[in-house]
């Protein structure tokens, strides 16, 4: 199918343009000295400077990061432990737990958010950062479980038993034989959980209560009156950081290995 190469390239570029054009406009707007969204008033760094002086936005930013890190960490620990525990369970019990795990994945975010809100209200908990954290852990654990579980299928149990025959304690054998094998799943589960938490709006919207904001809820509250260009500036910084990180990680992968294995 080589003859269609031109069409394929054109199509790919067209979709890339569709995906990136809105992001690029946001980035351009972050340098626009006019507050208008369609009129170019000249190049400026002002929004980047005032961003760091804007307490509300910075607070929302740190809330977002802290919630994402902590919820992804706790979800990774709970999720990984659950996967290990499920290996020795009877099949029925295991499928019950996996069934429950699928509920937040398949259900609508709005229903998950509302159900958690009703739970917190029923328990008379004041909603704020803590309830958002609980909610994020809840919807993050399934992502960890679904990325760790498949790794167990590839494990060579004979090695694990051999290690014990040679005198290793079960814990030692586990951390040295099994854990390295599931580690890639654990890491990708963590990253997935972190991403989902970072980007969540709907569930946070229902569980945050008054006075607590993440970036998403902050942006939503500004939609009606117009989003401040400082938020464009912040997102530009965040997006560029992720992009740079990715390029660095991948560049390392492609570079021919140097002596000494400085991985």
């Amino acid at each position: 199918m080589i003859r269609h190469n031109g069409i394929k390239r054109f199509y790919t570029i067209l979709i890339l343009f569709f995906l990136y054009a809105p992001i690029l406009t946001l980035m351009v707007l972050s340098f626009n000295s006019s507050k208008s969204r369609s009129h170019w008033g000249g190049f400026t760094f002002d929004w980047y400077i005032s961003l760091f002086e804007n307490e509300h936005i910075m607070q929302a930013f740190w809330n977002t990061i802290i919630i994402a890190v902590i919820s992804a960490l706790i979800a990774t620990i709970f999720g990984t432990l659950a996967c290990i525990g499920m290996q020795v369970m009877k099949k029925r019990m295991r499928s019950v737990i996996m069934g429950i795990t699928n509920i937040p994945m398949l259900n609508a975010d709005i229903v998950t958010g509302i159900s958690l809100m009703l739970l917190f209200i029923a328990c008379r908990v004041n909603m704020g950062g803590a309830t958002v954290l609980l909610a994020h852990i809840t919807f993050n654990i399934p992502y960890v479980i679904l990325s760790v579980m498949p790794k167990f299928r590839q494990i060579n149990y004979a090695t694990y038993e051999a290690a014990q025959d040679l005198g290793a304690t079960p814990t030692y054998a586990f951390t040295h034989i099994i854990f390295p094998d599931i580690l890639p799943g654990v890491i990708s589960g963590f990253l997935m959980a972190f991403t989902m938490s970072l980007d969540d709006f709907i569930i946070t919207h229902f569980t945050k209560g008054a006075g607590f904001d993440t970036l998403s809820t902050k942006i939503y509250s500004e939609v009606k009156k117009g989003v401040s260009p400082e938020i464009y500036a912040l997102s530009t910084i965040m997006f560029t950081l992720v992009l740079a990180l990715l390029v660095i990680v991948n560049a390392r992968k492609f570079r021919p290995k140097k002596k000494g294995g400085a991985a």
Partner: peptide, 30 residues
């Protein structure tokens, strides 16, 4: 798999099980 591993390992899934009942099942019931 895991024949050599003690059945007690099951307990590792307990925290998540309790969590999922508390934060997935009960909210749906509500």
């Amino acid at each position: 798999p895991w024949k050599s591993l003690s059945k007690k390992t099951r307990a590792l899934a307990a925290p998540y099980f309790v969590w999922s009942v508390g934060f997935i099942i009960i909210p749906l019931i509500i």
